[in-house]
Design a protein around this nucleic acid. Sequence first.
DNA 1: GATGAATGAGCCTTCATTCAT
DNA 2: TATGAATGAAGGCTCATTCAT
Lengths: 191, 191, 191, 191
Amino acid sequence: MVRLKTDDKRAAILKATLRLVNSNGFHAAPMAKIASEIGISAGTIYLYFQNKEDLINTLYRELKARFATKALQGFSPDMPVKKGFETIWRNILQYKISEPEEAVFIEQCDNTPMVTDVSREVGLKSVQPLFDLWEQGQREGIIKPVCRQTLFAFSLFPIIYLANIYTKASKELSAETIDAAFGASWDAIRM
Amino acid sequence: MVRLKTDDKRAAILKATLRLVNSNGFHAAPMAKIASEIGISAGTIYLYFQNKEDLINTLYRELKARFATKALQGFSPDMPVKKGFETIWRNILQYKISEPEEAVFIEQCDNTPMVTDVSREVGLKSVQPLFDLWEQGQREGIIKPVCRQTLFAFSLFPIIYLANIYTKASKELSAETIDAAFGASWDAIRM
Amino acid sequence: MVRLKTDDKRAAILKATLRLVNSNGFHAAPMAKIASEIGISAGTIYLYFQNKEDLINTLYRELKARFATKALQGFSPDMPVKKGFETIWRNILQYKISEPEEAVFIEQCDNTPMVTDVSREVGLKSVQPLFDLWEQGQREGIIKPVCRQTLFAFSLFPIIYLANIYTKASKELSAETIDAAFGASWDAIRM
Amino acid sequence: MVRLKTDDKRAAILKATLRLVNSNGFHAAPMAKIASEIGISAGTIYLYFQNKEDLINTLYRELKARFATKALQGFSPDMPVKKGFETIWRNILQYKISEPEEAVFIEQCDNTPMVTDVSREVGLKSVQPLFDLWEQGQREGIIKPVCRQTLFAFSLFPIIYLANIYTKASKELSAETIDAAFGASWDAIRM
DNA sequence: GATGAATGAGCCTTCATTCAT
DNA sequence: TATGAATGAAGGCTCATTCAT
């Protein structure tokens, strides 16, 4: 196999881990298999990561960071509340659909003791701008005066389910379905 | 230890499995531990279940069945759509909160190759009456004319998140929060 | 291979460990080799010992206990000091010569982090009667008034060296050599 | 880090090995750690030593040689027997106390297959002058007519124990204790 | 000379599963 | 029915050693 440069190798390890964990759960991703997947020795992984927990957590954090970046693309705090919300909402849906593997992996991680609480906290910070936006909307009387968890539960959390369904069925979400879904989302949280 | 009757033993095995898997993931539920938890030998489990996969799948299906029963409690197809929906909605929330262990287990299973696709399908059937109710609502022009997945995603799926949050924080959901949550849920799917 | 009863198996594991560690150091005693030495599976060892550290420490303590028993054989606190000392002295020499493997193992252990300090302390208690004897001798003006470590260093510690030399050379210690050695030992500590 | 000259580097490797092996046994001295300890690459060690065994054996021999030099400091074959013996005796004690690391290392090595028998033999030669002295003393009727091993066992070997005890306890040996110890030593071997 | 990434054999340990009793 | 000793196949990880640069 082609000899990879150091940085590429680190990335390749992460990618192989993502692929394997996704295909069949954590159980299906022993270090040796991750290694052989990209034609390296199991020991080599330990040159790039301290141990398996470190590998998983690193992957988790990097995906979360990428997710945050993509989720906030094109968003600005100056936007009107609904416009801002829709921007983020569509970004997230787009992400879940175009990178289904990453999305699935993150969900897997959220149910594993292998992912540290610290990592999880780091992940949470990424959506802060959204929370700020909601608060502003509540002050303006546009958004229902309920806790942020409730808002999240009914407007963004559903995207996970939606994207999952369509990804697993290998169907595409039509523009109409998406528009309708956003409608439901907005109706759920608007006054 | 007191000698359990056959049926009780089967139930005890299932219960111990539930408890252990929940406390720390699948990783924390080796057969030997499940057995010792209830004072029997590891070998004995194999008198009641073919193997670990069978044990997990059986548990999964039984919990799903119990869930379905509870979810439909007090519901009747004759009810007005909103009334019927609210009944089921509150049942499900109640279940997620009062039996957090079962709820958590089911989520764990949905990310594991240990649970067969067959088992998963069986689980889905249980909510058929709800789907029928939505269809009726759509015919009556009360419910948004979108696919059932979308309806599910925005009205029931959020309950998982909500219940999780509060269970993990050991907080209780106030009646107001619940009412507000139901409001969001209904707004999301109603015309 | 003949099926061993449970107790015999535990003993066989300890014996094989002793033999292997002695033959070439700790390095030469992987769990798998210990197991195969007596025709069992590596996993089986873990039915009798928690882990390798436990195995080593258990062996260490049992040998120390056996040593203490043998060292004090025929000794009584009522004996005259010299007689008592000679009894113990000859017992120890006898032990080191007749059970050279055990003796060597214990020395190996005293230089390994694998043996817990707790285990070491337990080992020390066994020679208390000897210390008492020395104190009595000192009160009677028969033994040099120096600390017990010094007494030990010049009267009993040398036995290790002596026995080692002769064991390695497969020579036997003649009665004359032994008598002479005891003479040196007694001269070293007597007034 | 400052670039070391070739000879210094060789010495640094040996020193780091000594330090690490001592701090926690052979187990605690992997090549990579030895290297990083002095800011070089693991591979570099192989420019100075064939392999780990060679490294250990070289260190062993050098320490033995240094020991021999120090042990015989100020000694001359012309001295009266007791005077000569006392000189060497105190040198050895001094060495064991002032260079406890070297002493500990040598003992560790004497229980390891990593140190070749050849190396061990080399080490023995260093004390030849002492053996000659004893023979002279025996001819003069001053020293007990027993084999050199017995003499060694009761007069010099005990020093190891004594020094160990005090080093581990970080206590100092008082002049009185030392004098008393020498008394015991001399009494053990003199007629 | 020097590096350090890469290797691969080997170690300890766990665990689902079997089977003689 | 029930046991629990025994198995053996992994799995995570370490480390002496090599080699292209």
